[in-house]
Amino acid sequence: MNWTVIGIWLGALLSLSLYSFLYKDNPFYKFAEHLFVGMSAGYWVIYTIMNVLIPNWWNNLVPAEGGMQPIWLIPGVLGLFMVLRVVPKLSGLSRFSLALIVGTGAGLSMTAMFQTNALAQVNGTIIALGQGGGWFDWVSNLILVAGVVCGLVYFFFSKAHTGVIGGAANVGITLLMVAFGASFGYTVMARISLLIGQTQFLLFDWLPTMGIHL
């Protein structure tokens, strides 16, 4: 018995404990779940300290070359405000930090979202219908353009989906559902490959440790 075999057994038993959830909630699943949640929470605490707090804040506040950069006290104070949530009388201070996080997040997201979700889509849709040459390309391009326009109509909230607008919205949502169906199938295939990988681990790594070779 060596550490590799112990690792394989731990992996196999925890995998089976998690799969046991398919039957119903049971003590094995509970054990694996609590172990997973607890270990991952602990891991992320250390990860955040070592990879975020120390390199991004502490090393800037107190650089290796000496001295201190007082400007870096500001994020430190904001962080302290968050910790003060545990003190009921001072918990209101955390709202300053939260307001900064939410406001900055919304502001920074605005340009990125606008770029990727609006302009890039519009830019990619402006094509000549005859681009590609053949009749199939012509039809494909027409479906692309009509799909984008009708999809946008579906997301009109200030007009009732009746008449022409309703018809266009129906075409839009139908095309969206076709795309979602394709995406569903594609992702399920990827999930099946994960299942196959874990099954192979159990069959070809774990069973041989008990002398069972397939």
């Binding site: 519009v122 402006i126 000549a128 326009v149 200030s158």
Partner: peptide, 26 residues
Amino acid sequence: LRGQDAAKLFFMVVIVIGVLTATLGE
């Protein structure tokens, strides 16, 4: 929300004009 709808309408118009002019532009 109404303003965002107006933005969508603007983009639809840009797309339709863009596609028509690109097609005619050949």
